[in-house]
Design a protein around this nucleic acid. Structure first.
Lengths: 103, 103
DNA sequence: CTTTAATGTTAGTTTAAACTTACGTAAGTG
DNA sequence: CACTTACGTAAGTTTAAACTAACATTAAAG
């Protein structure tokens, strides 16, 4: 799961994901969207994202269309939910710790 | 926002966040939880997380207690929600693309 | 006002990973 | 079956960031 977060954290891969958020595109067109990055580099990033199940592939002749795999984000989401949702136990622990240091 | 994700993506920082999920701890005790990492390294990681507003600090004498700043996760959460939530427009675009390649 | 405890900071080294160049492959086209 | 198109892969280089060792700081205690 940490590997999924690492996959997302790279700026280029983040941009690729954002690009594919609402559409599917072939690898070549994805590369055209970036001026400062070559096609092979994009290809490698796609591989990383695919390995982490964050992208899915659809083949059509020589073309390979990529789109975001919504389901791949569920683990990351669940993890972040734990940070977002305030825990009663946590608040209690914080209060106790504060109490202790006052002594 | 990409910097927040990068902050979380490092395994050591990820472990620190997990450790502080339900409790606050002073820097020294955080470091004690990791065998293969020195105290200065932990200190640097704390700095990165604090810069990205993912940790908050409470000073008590010479000690500095750290805990997770729930609010700091809101941007990341909002971003991931967009991937999680299936978009009607997206499904439409995917269908159209599929149609086009069949010609 | 020196001393200690807890922590932060800086410089320099090591390590990981992103990128480029060159080559390989697989599916159509004439 | 040569040729092209669209893409993937591998080797090697470059770049970024994690780590260590040594020094600095800040707040209490004697």
């Amino acid at each position: 799961m940490i590997q999924q977060i690492q996959a997302i954290s790279d700026p280029t891969r983040f941009a690729i994901l954002s690009l594919l958020k609402d559409q599917e595109l072939p690898a070549g067109e994805i590369a055209e969207n970036f001026e400062n990055i070559t096609r092979p580099a994009v290809s490698q990033h796609i591989r990383v994202l695919k390995d982490q199940h964050l992208l899915q592939e659809r083949r059509e002749g020589t073309r390979r269309y990529y789109s975001v795999n919504t389901k791949g984000f569920s683990d990351i989401r669940a993890f972040l939910e734990e940070f977002w949702t305030p825990k009663l136990q946590k608040l209690k622990t914080l209060a106790e710790a504060e109490e202790r240091t006052k002594k």
